[in-house]
């Protein structure tokens, strides 16, 4: 009763169905397309939406990169990469520019993506209006009527209470001037990267059974008021202690012994790449 799995795990019927949902999502930017969402060999809530997208679009020629919170070597990224590689045999990479498909949890890489790449984001909660309306039946109506007062009021309330908006990651965005969309819990720092992105961005929520998309060159605006403009996380005056960059999203690192706080690139492959380049330059200079 031993069996081998099909290419990319799914039977072809399932892949087709997911691709149809993806096509619809691309055709209606920011709209959440329901799909049946198969159970995967990794847990619901652990990236199954992204994984289903990746598995249904991947071909033998693709080069895959998987990151979790910025890191290629994070345990869940490794686990997802392993599953895709075992069932497809595709090449994997850490280098952002080499990948054709990048599956990511909660980050958009620092290296700008181009039109030959697809970014697949894992989404835990696809509904940007869930905090103001618990019922799916109602939120669907609100979207269809472009009734987004709830989303605006949430921001307004924050300003009233705290003097500024207090959203963390997953700050809602307006896509193609029509749908308010949860960008997935990427930091606000990454929101602007979605605007007019050259790469296709696909977002998958496995447990909530939704697929949505930001097609290339689409307007994506973070929700904000004219007098309280959108602000990304501030790392002013801070730089990566390893590669010295200062214009990227930084992790705060606490030294256990001294309690000293330092910062380093959250995007580990970007940091590594810069370090290698620096080293190469140094070697070349020394030999020159």
């Amino acid at each position: 009763m031993k069996t081998n799995h099909h290419f990319a795990f799914f039977d072809e019927g399932s892949k087709k169905e997911i691709r149809r949902a993806i096509l619809k999502a691309v055709a209606i930017p920011g709209y959440q397309v329901p799909f049946s969402s198969r159970e995967m060999p990794i847990a619901r809530g652990w990236g199954t939406g992204g994984l289903q997208i990746t598995l249904s679009i991947i071909g033998c020629e693709d080069v895959l990169k998987v990151i979790d919170q910025g890191s290629d070597e994070s345990v869940n990224a490794v686990s997802i990469k392993k599953l895709v590689q075992t069932t497809t045999g595709v090449e994997v990479t850490d280098l952002t520019q080499e990948a054709t498909i990048i599956q990511s949890r909660h980050r958009i890489p620092e290296v700008p993506l181009d039109s030959n790449q697809i970014l697949v984001l894992q989404v835990p909660a696809p509904e940007p209006l869930r905090d103001v309306e618990a019922r799916e039946y109602m939120t669907k109506i609100l979207h269809s009527e472009e009734e987004y007062s709830g989303a605006w009021l949430q921001l307004f309330e924050q300003i009233m209470k705290f003097g500024r908006t207090t959203t963390g990651a997953d700050h809602p965005v307006y896509v193609n001037h029509r749908y308010v969309m949860a960008p997935s819990p990427i930091p606000r720092f990454d929101n602007p990267k979605m605007h007019q992105s050259e790469a296709l961005i696909l977002l998958g929520a496995g447990r909530e059974k939704k697929i949505y998309a930001v097609p290339p060159f689409t307007d994506v605006r973070s929700l904000a008021f004219d007098d309280y403009p959108f602000k990304v996380e501030s790392f002013s005056g801070k730089q990566c202690r390893l590669c010295g960059t200062s214009d990227v999203f930084l992790d705060e690192v606490l030294a256990a012994d001294t309690g000293e706080v330092s910062y380093q690139c959250n995007d580990t492959s970007y940091c590594m790449e810069r370090l290698n380049q620096a080293e190469k330059a140094e070697v070349e200079n020394n030999y020159a």
């Binding site: 919170q69 949890r105 990651a169």
Partner: peptide, 15 residues
């Protein structure tokens, strides 16, 4: 699945 995903790192979101 969703309860157990809370064990995954949330460094970026927390930051």
């Amino acid at each position: 699945g969703f309860i157990s995903h809370l064990k995954l790192p949330h460094y970026v979101t927390f930051q």
